[in-house]
Nucleic acid binder design. Structure first.
Lengths: 353, 353
DNA sequence: AAAGATAACGAAAACGTTTTCGTGTTAATA
DNA sequence: TATTAACACGAAAACGTTTTCGTTATCTTT
């Protein structure tokens, strides 16, 4: 009688010893290899089932030289957009038999490098990543290049890097921004402003570009642009008061503004709050469109019209691209850049009343 | 001259062949084993450094029978509280040399089981998990028991299960709720209501209990309780309209309510929105306290007073408990339940004006 | 010069699989 | 009856480490 050992997991070797056959026989029997007689196969399978044998993943990984896990590196997890992306990645990964291991860079170049090195040494088969702001600023991409040179595929999303050749999934930031601004103009706004980040944040830059494109296409001159560039740190909730003050000053300085396109939800809501202080009613006196269809947009009062980035779809695409490359025998499959279209979600802040 | 093979990672075997020594010598040299002469040690280390040798994690995991990775199973990732917990877990895990692998149950019992089985077979050293609502409902905990019986430690957090013996980290839900309600009463509210979940959601139940405790301690009779139990599905943003209607009806039915304690941010903000429709001003006519100090509380207008659960601390504690157990030689270390205290964050919805 | 001591290295096992290539036994064929 | 085919199984290598236990060759010591 076999007494299941609490601490030691059931292994092929144990089964073999119990049944009185060799390890190879057990392995073959469990995989229905016809080499093994019906009789012993039954016996082995019954035993394995009874004691709930499951092959050791690590041993399999070592043998197959693939781990069936995907490494995801993101700058920040307490962030709606990134969580939706992860949920998309996880969904297709799981469905295709992959696990997802997460590394957080916290917007730090150092942590990004460390995390990638930690995972690149056999723990995962490939990366899906969005680079940290610091990496964008420093423009040091050696860790990405080295990873790729080692033969480990990378799929970059959202914050991608032109200099690195790999599969990418991006949001049509400039196009989305342009559409948002056009929408404001079409709603009758005469003076549309943008609240954006500093230019080294790539997506901020692209959305600013979209804003300008929209104005140009409506023959609004450069002199009528209203651009508020905000420092990085103001995005942090601890600076919420300061953020509001800065925006308030901006609105005071430009009293004719009747439409605001903000490159994220936080800026948008703060703008609304500031407007209230100036006794401007949203959407009557001021219409607002944000970016990212997150929890804030939905539950704000008034609810915020915003450009959805479809983060989940983006994540799914990224996972599909990576897995396809991992499982393709064709080594030099051409790199792809998938663009996920944004979509305007109209809520109360753009209602015409 | 060694030509780095792009595809095949550098291994001890390769180095050994290049230098002309045995694998063991290389291994020892890299670990500064005094058995190896200064001369060859230098040579090997130089070579390894030049070609950036990093030991293969999978091989190490197999050899050491530990993976140095923690499996985290949560019901939902697009959820502020859980992301803060993850960030806490990740912080201490990384600092102690562990990786974090994430599984999502999506509140499904099935997915929870599958995910755990997928990870339990060698991929991780231990679990940190919060069970799905369905698991709470079905009361089927065999997967948890089996995992523990296999010798794999589990740390449960937030949504824990009494029947399962393991380390736990919980929020003092009932105490926090009680304090919130007491605060409302002390602010002068004569009729405090609670907006809560159905009772099978453990944390909802506990917070409801806290509500009742608070009333009792202020000698408010049971007949003066106002409890609104909301269905699960109403938490989903797609039912935001319906949620508002239900709360609106509740407020109409109980026009004397001048204080609301909501068991999450979403209920709280919807209550505020509903109140506005009834021309009740917050906080003048109605004071509100929520639960979870998330993004919604901070950026709402008026900003929401709420009970912070300190998710990050909770995650850190959980990781510490798990790692301590993993690295302790003492097999039957007594199980611990750590309680993370809540804290009232006072913002505009409880301002006395 | 014989004995032991030390230094420097290699062989091999182990972790848990899968898979290729034997090998021995029985059954079928010439 | 001798040869071959089919069958059922086992040995061993491989994945990449670490570590124990040899095994040489050189160096001390008396």
């Amino acid at each position: 009688m076999y007494v299941p050992n609490q601490m030691h997991k059931l292994t092929l070797k144990n089964i073999a010893k119990e049944i009185g056959v060799s390890i190879s026989t057990v392995s073959k029997a469990l995989k229905d290899n016809p080499e093994i007689s019906e009789d012993t196969r039954q016996k082995i399978k019954a035993f394995a089932k009874l004691y709930n044998y499951k092959p050791n993943n690590i041993a399999l990984s070592l043998k197959n030289r693939k781990t069936k896990t995907i490494g995801v590196i993101i700058p920040e997890i307490v962030h709606y957009f990134f969580t939706t992306v992860i949920s998309g990645i996880e969904e297709v990964a799981n469905q295709r038999g992959y696990n997802v291991i997460i590394g957080l860079s916290n917007e730090s170049f150092q942590k990004e490098v460390i995390n990638m090195e930690m995972l690149a040494n056999g723990s995962i088969d490939g990366f899906i990543l969005s680079v940290s702001k610091e990496t964008q600023l420093l423009k040091d991409f050696h860790h990405l290049e080295e990873t790729i040179n080692q033969g480990m595929p990378i799929v970059m999303f959202d914050r991608t890097i032109n200099e690195i050749l790999c599969d990418k999934v991006i949001v049509d930031d400039s196009e989305g921004a342009k559409n948002a601004v056009l929408k404001l103009i079409d709603l009758g706004c005469k003076d549309v402003a943008i609240i954006t980040t500093e230019d080294h944040v790539n997506v901020g830059k692209l959305r600013t570009k979209g804003y300008k494109m929209a104005l140009r296409s409506r023959n609004i001159s450069k002199s009528n642009e209203h651009i508020l560039h905000l420092e990085e740190r103001l995005y942090d909730p601890i600076f919420i008061k300061e953020l509001e003050v800065v925006i308030l000053d901006f609105l005071k300085l430009n009293p004719t503004i009747d439409g605001i396109f903000a490159v994220n939800e936080v800026y948008a809501l703060s703008a609304i709050k500031a407007a209230k202080k100036l006794f401007k009613e949203v959407p009557k006196d001021l219409k607002v469109i944000g970016f990212t269809d997150g929890i804030l947009s939905k539950y704000a009062t008034p609810s915020l019209s915003t450009m959805s980035q479809h983060g989940k779809i983006l994540g799914m695409k990224a996972a599909e691209l990576l897995i396809r490359r991992l499982e393709s025998t064709d080594v030099d499959f051409p790199f792809q850049t998938v663009i996920v279209e944004t979509e305007l979600i109209e809520r109360e802040t753009t209602k015409n009343i």
